[in-house]
Write a protein that binds this DNA or RNA. Structure first.
Lengths: 107, 107
DNA sequence: TTTTGATATCGTAATATTGCAATATTAAAA
DNA sequence: TTTTAATATTGCAATATTACGATATCAAAA
């Protein structure tokens, strides 16, 4: 109990839900938006910018990095996070496919 | 602690995250897909189709209905759930806007 | 080499989510 | 009216998520 029963769904369904889930937190939405607004690579100004504790931001960044939406490069003692444009574009296409193929016309 | 700090984000960010979150469960992805495959209105065959308990399916349906992605019509002692095409299309556009405006070109 | 600054990780508390059995509810059928 | 079938709701247990303080790590600066 309490755990999502992933075994009973297709890999595709689980994968799709996983991406949606990672995007399903306003801090992570905000992080992605902020990172994309800086056209130079910007690091943990996010802590000031967003207003969550450093540990919390770091955790959200990790989730985004783990699923591949962000890539992080070490730059001296700073980290440089950027959107992984390849996956970003791929994901956008996948989501559009999902939306287009999930359009009922009944009712 | 433990609660998402919605106050520190914009309404748009919260709203977007909310939709992502609802879509972030494979059962709800599966429900939307199944409902859309039936071009007649189909009810709780979902319980058999998906393989979760009736109470659980009902709960997921409620979430999808609450956020507006599904609309339910009573049909005798059955319920008829359908995708709310208007919101579906609007949401698809919003997500595309999010993806298009969140494309960094650094790194 | 010591200090400093940026980030990651650990541990923990508070809260949310998932799932189900049991129990309502309610409309048609008998 | 009683039964039956479909769905909703309640209550609860298991687990996951969110957030943060306290530390650890680690590279550059002093």
């Amino acid at each position: 109990m309490g755990t999502t029963k992933t075994q009973i769904f297709t890999q595709k369904q689980n994968e799709l839900a996983q991406y949606f889930k990672v995007l399903g937190h306003p801090a992570r939405v905000a992080i992605l938006q902020y990172v994309s607004q800086q056209n130079a690579c910007i690091c943990n100004d996010l802590v000031e910018e967003i207003g969550l504790a450093q540990a919390t931001i770091s955790q959200h960044l990790k989730e985004l990095k783990t699923i591949g939406l962000l890539k992080g490069e070490v730059e001296g003692k700073r980290m440089c996070y950027c959107i992984n444009l390849e996956l970003w574009t791929t994901l956008q296409n996948e989501l559009n496919t999902f939306f287009n193929t999930t359009k009922s016309n009944c009712c």
